[in-house]
Measured scan of single mutants.
Amino acid sequence: MGFKLLSKLLVYLTASIMAIASPLAFSVDSSGEYPTVSEIPVGEVRLYQIADGVWSHIATQSFDGAVYPSNGLIVRDGDELLLIDTAWGAKNTAALLAEIEKQIGLPVTRAVSTHFHDDRVGGVDVLRAAGVATYASPSTRRLAEVEGNEIPTHSLEGLSSSGDAVRFGPVELFYPGAAHSTDNLIVYVPSASVLYGGCAIYELSRTSAGNVADADLAEWPTSIERIQQHYPEAQFVIPGHGLPGGLDLLKHTTNVVKAHTNRSVVE
């Protein structure tokens, strides 16, 4: 069995187990497998329904001669939608809004960016022009300005110390501490036991640490421990890039980060 097929099978099995364990909360999309990078042309966006009122959005972007996937989250909030992270750029984010209108038909009224990198804030200006209120932590807003990236308009308070959590509509926002970046936030959907790890969490097929220019490698494993301790009931975990899975993604990420750190020390 090929690795790609095995990865998709694991996603399907995880979703099936969740649907059985929580039949009222989960209505997993039966329309197909989780979209992969090879299936999404740059400039297009796919939506994948995880649970009743919960979707991931998947886009792709060219970077350094390669094409990478990027995940975000959409959560229903009454007759409105909360968006977590842009679709990595203005063109993708405009396509995301169009796809949401086509498939869901509810307005996106608020959006949260989970850290300051372009795959999370690139497209904020498109959201703002569409009347979406954009939010991020003060740290993310400051770092985005320093980096020359787009800056969300509103500040999220109460997320300055490791372990801080605040309720934001249908989700809980959690600051686990520094990891992929010093400002990275985690998003949890309690009604569906869905954990969105953003770039602080890796997919299972990833074996290298990737972009760690703004990471705190020493603190990252401790931050992941905080996530595990705060959300032990999480059933569906979405990484910032690639295929979702279960809580095993947290341990896998820790292993990859520690291996990278150990290699760096040896070198």
Rank of each mutant, 00 (worst) to 15 (best):
S160G: 07
L97S: 03
V121E: 01
I100Q: 02
I186E: 01
T182S: 09
G78R: 12
D183A: 01
V237P: 01
G78L: 09
G197M: 03
T134D: 11
A21G: 10
A133Q: 09
L5V: 05
P41D: 10
I84W: 00
I104G: 02
E172R: 08
H57Y: 06
T207H: 06
S113I: 15
E157I: 11
V212W: 10
A200E: 05
D85F: 00
G65T: 05
L217Q: 08
L127S: 01
T109I: 15
M18L: 03
Y48A: 10
G122N: 15
E267R: 10
P239I: 02
V11D: 09
A59E: 11
R167P: 06
V171W: 00
Q61P: 05
P190L: 04
G53H: 15
Y68T: 14
L9M: 07
M1D: 12
W220D: 02
G2T: 12
V54M: 14
K258N: 03
K91M: 10
V146F: 09
V256W: 14
L143Y: 11
R141Q: 06
M1Y: 15
E147K: 12
E101V: 04
S155P: 06
S38K: 08
G89I: 02
T86I: 05
L247F: 02
Y196G: 09
S30P: 05
S16M: 03
E99R: 15
F3M: 05
L83Q: 07
I201N: 00
P69E: 05
G240R: 01
G122W: 05
N262D: 11
F174A: 04
V108M: 13
G131D: 06
A192R: 11
F116H: 15
T86S: 12
L195P: 00
A130F: 12
Q235V: 05
T153Y: 15
S31V: 00
V42E: 10
G131R: 09
K91V: 14
S223E: 01
Y175F: 06
G198P: 01
L73H: 00
L9Q: 05
Y231K: 04
T153R: 08
T261C: 11
G210S: 07
E44A: 13
E172G: 11
S208E: 06
F116K: 12
E147Q: 06
V189D: 12
V189F: 08
L9D: 12
N71M: 06
Q103K: 07
L10E: 13
V11N: 05
G72C: 02
A179G: 07
V166L: 09
P190D: 10
T114V: 00
Y231Q: 02
S7W: 14
T114D: 04
D183K: 02
V171A: 08
I84A: 11
V42H: 13
E150L: 15
W88T: 10
A144D: 14
S30V: 08
G65D: 04
G131N: 15
A90W: 11
G242K: 01
A90Y: 04
G242H: 06
A21L: 10
A21K: 09
T60Y: 02
Y34F: 05
V166G: 05
I227E: 01
W220G: 03
Y196F: 03
V265Y: 15
Y34A: 13
P232F: 02
D79Q: 04
V124G: 04
L127T: 02
D52Q: 03
N149V: 12
R76A: 12
A178E: 10
F168G: 00
S62W: 03
V45P: 14
Y12W: 10
